[in-house]
Amino acid sequence: MAGEPVMAPEPPPVIWFNGAIRPWAEATVHVWTELATRGANVFEGIRAYQHPDGHHRVLSGAAHLRRLFESAALLRMPTAYSQEALVAAIDDLLVAFAGQGHLYLRPTLYVEHGRNGVDLSDTVTGAYVAALPVRRPDKVSDGIRVCVSTWRRGGDLVFSPLIKAGSAYHAFRLPLLEARDMGADEAILLNEQGRVTEATGANLFMVRGEQVITPPLSAGILAGITRSNLIEVLEQDLGLEVIERDIPRTELYLADEVFLCGTLAEVVPVVAIDGRSVGTCLAGPVTAAARNRYLGICDGLIPDTYGWFGVPARSPTHRVAEAPTIDNAR
């Protein structure tokens, strides 16, 4: 995606791997693990923003960890580490990366051995959490050009979009390559009914008149946490009506504004779809207002009235907000 966050070209020095902070190069698995051969993992992408006081604060940490363990539960994947253990792991990483700016955190639960095992007696599992310094690109407001892919988003009876699994993201490879071949930055996928779902790594919003519209979960989208946060901003801060409903492809061409959102992407204006200009080919007023409000809260420049952040984490005594226990257990 054009305008995507910039990560350092070199890997970080440390990673949390199966219970401890370890040197990056030592966090290895064998090529014959289920993780390597079948992509047997579920994961989350979480942002930790360094605020003006120097402390890192984790954005929607409880919601992300809840979704991580829900993904594992939907796949009937046993887990060797609890949510509380991952909370502590994230905090330890924030201590190790103190003062290094905004971070992208990637907690992952994976299967090492036991292809179809449903309990730990015949399955070996593991977990890791990576932290990567990331900065916002200078031209974040320029917008991107997208195309509607000829590939389709798989439905709930194929592989549920509610499961955030590494293997599921292979379904986005060909749409994204198709977009690049067509001179676009990103692809929007339709479902089998021809309705708009999402982009390859972000949810979608469309503005028509006084309404903001986004596809419902039933369209076959990931239950985006940034999407939920933005709905709060749009409705409560900006006083706009947000409607969750199906969007046919051709309605995108009539939109006054379109923007994408995600943990890593944050809020990205769409300025063209299939070669057709969206609005004035610039970020529209709703997109700009939502982006500025959202980023202001994330960066600690606007008070967090929604409770998105946990407590600041800079010493081992601090903890991010703990996720509630999932009874049937990103």
Rank of each mutant, 00 (worst) to 15 (best):
M1F: 10
G3V: 02
P5T: 01
A8W: 01
P9H: 07
P11D: 12
G19R: 06
P23F: 07
P23A: 15
T28E: 14
A36K: 01
A36N: 11
F43C: 03
A62G: 06
L65R: 07
L65N: 05
L74H: 06
V95G: 04
H102L: 00
L103F: 05
G117K: 01
T125Q: 12
G126N: 13
A131L: 06
R136I: 09
P137N: 04
S141R: 04
I144L: 14
R152Q: 13
G155R: 05
G155I: 04
D156C: 04
L157I: 08
P161C: 12
L162Q: 12
A165H: 02
R173L: 15
E178H: 12
G183P: 08
A184V: 00
D185W: 01
N191Y: 11
G201D: 10
F205R: 02
L222M: 15
T226C: 07
L230S: 05
I231P: 07
L234T: 04
L234F: 11
L240Q: 12
E241S: 11
V242W: 12
T250H: 12
E251V: 06
D256G: 06
E266Y: 00
P269I: 05
V270R: 00
T280V: 05
T280F: 02
T280I: 04
T287Q: 08
A288K: 09
A290Q: 04
G300R: 00
I302M: 09
Y306E: 13
P312D: 06
R314S: 15
T317F: 09
P324K: 06
T325D: 13
R330M: 12
